[in-house]
Write a protein that binds this DNA or RNA. Structure first.
Lengths: 330, 330
DNA sequence: ACAAATATTGAAACCAGTTTCAATCATTCT
DNA sequence: AGAATGATTGAAACTGGTTTCAATATTTGT
């Protein structure tokens, strides 16, 4: 490795001067600056980040915590964050929790050891009380998750609105027997709670009573969707429409429905959430709630970098709008 | 931050001794060792990795270069690599090239600056000649890409076999007019070349002449697939089957075919590549060539960590088998 | 022209660890 | 018992940068 001393020697100056050139220190005579630049060029010198961050506060890497990168929602999010990071000279560490609390905490330790200068959490497994102590070591930005704490910046979408417009859309299509199939619990908090409230509110406005047996929780995958369809088929009083918490569940539901000889949307209307690639590719096309994933990721990255550069903490909540994408499944 | 000196002070030993405890140096009296351990525990001490890697060869992070993380193929790959890394105490940096040569090179620089201890390249934009110099700074493992160089470890699947069994399957189904729709060029090298050879070989064995107008290159996305379908529809002599280079192209093709009133597979048989989630969800289900992505990622991670730990360079080529997944589209 | 302010520069200290080197202490071997 | 060997320990050097401090040179103000 060529070091700053090699450069200094070649340029005939002290390493202090070289360091100043690297960091754009203002008062350097233009001839020396040029010599240093030339020497750096000639030697192909790149400063060693470990050395830089050991002393200064140099920040170059951010970490993104997600449950599973293979979930398109999160890969799109990471995509957006990586791009913002790259444009600003930051590397992006990818941290999969696999919904494991331990793993999440171990990744939070990256802050403590300054292996990451800041963290964007797109999922949160532990209680905030257990995570909060880590904010002492570096900024944490929540993205897609939220909690009732005013002291941490959050980027979120209006989940309440998402469910509300989706269910309302079903009601406008004439449905009154609308099932609700979600990832979280119905007695949830944060994101899931808002979604549930949107469902309840839409029904209430239409004067429809919630039927608890049509509420199915802890569903996530295509496989779950297929099983839910089986449950629906077995019901005496069967819903005519299903609002699902993700396009995957919706996809599984649709596949199983077709297999059972039901036609979508005539026999069963289905609506998804996220607007992932599969929504477009399903037949019939899946009506779904689009979340502005790229925007969320971009915003999360920007908020974090802002904190890192300004050192000014930011605890604002940014809320982005959702959008109903109507296709043929409703 | 608590440092090694704080620990040393509390334990009543020199920082050298603390360092030795951290690194499991053999000759330390058990009482001192215990004191140090206790002090570390008590202070919640974590060694600063920047300081460690500044001196020693401490390795803790690997980088994965992919074109686009939103492509499921690569997100599954990254998933597998991240898991291997995590189990061995490594962080995983995600590097998207977006097919930009500059960006790829800038990520290779991570090796030079020791921000990454090794790199797994799942895509390669620059010529190997331009990448090779970086191997001087740390190990590079090729995964899913390959080149005719015996001096770099590669994990690959038998692409030739993939295309061959796919096309052969179509022939067995009675097709003789088989189009070929691929991402790379037909006059390609490496991965693409092998695929092309598999196509040619299968046709040749069946005594079928290659029809150049049925060979469509530089196709990647669902959108491309739709456009290809339009091209096929406009042909006087239309193929009865299409072998595509990815499930996305196949999906686009299928959507457009159905829209045009063709039924799959009766009017047009379609076969994809990768066995991504959408393959199962398409209607009819997509026959495709499954690549053992998780295994590739796992193997790539293991090979890299092996090199890193043994310091013994490895230039073996690991080839993994592909598998034909027959669904309803053929 | 002289003081005050500003620009330019390098030596040395510093960041938080690891490694080298030498000293001391305890064992083992004739 | 005396020498040789191995265990245990810490001081100091080292990693590659940045920052402080002080010295010197140059400009500016009156």
């Amino acid at each position: 490795m060529t070091t700053i001393i090699d450069v200094a020697r070649l340029a005939g100056v002290s390493k202090t001067t070289v360091s100043r050139v690297i960091n754009n220190y203002p008062h350097i005579s233009s001839d020396k600056k040029e010599q240093v630049l030339k020497a750096m060029e000639q030697l192909g010198f790149t400063p060693n980040p470990s050395a830089r961050r050991l002393r200064g506060q140099l920040a170059t890497t951010i970490a993104v915590v997600v449950p599973k990168i293979v979930n398109p929602f999160f890969s799109y999010l990471v995509d957006a964050i990586e791009q913002v990071g790259y444009r600003n000279g930051y590397q992006t560490l990818i941290c999969q929790t696999n919904e494991d609390k331990e793993k999440e905490l171990s990744y939070l330790n990256l802050l403590k050891t300054k292996q990451a200068d800041g963290i964007i959490m797109a999922s949160i497994e532990n209680d905030w009380e257990d995570i909060k102590p880590y904010t002492e070591y570096g900024p944490i930005v929540l993205c897609n998750e939220y909690i009732n704490r005013p002291d941490v910046p959050m980027i979120r979408v209006d989940q309440y609105q998402g469910t509300y417009i989706g269910v309302k859309h079903l009601i406008e299509r004439g449905h009154r027997k609308i099932a609700y199939c979600t990832g979280g619990l119905f007695t949830a908090f944060g994101k899931d709670k808002d979604r549930n409230l949107g469902y309840q509110k839409a029904l209430e406005e239409a004067g429809i009573q919630v039927n608890p047996s049509w509420i199915l929780v802890d569903k996530h995958t295509i496989e779950d969707g297929k099983q839910v369809m089986q449950l629906l088929l077995d019901m005496k009083d069967r819903p005519t429409a299903v609002f699902t918490g993700s396009d995957e569940i919706a996809g599984g539901l649709m596949m199983a429905a077709k297999k059972a000889g039901l036609s979508v949307p005539q026999d069963l209307a289905i609506i998804g959430f996220d607007d992932q690639p599969i929504a477009e590719v399903l037949d019939p096309g899946l009506t779904t709630i689009r979340q502005p994933i790229e925007q969320m990721g971009k915003k999360a990255g920007e908020v974090l970098l802002n904190i890192l550069n300004q050192s000014g903490p930011d605890s604002a909540v940014y809320e982005l709008p959702v959008e109903l994408i109507v296709r043929q499944s409703t």
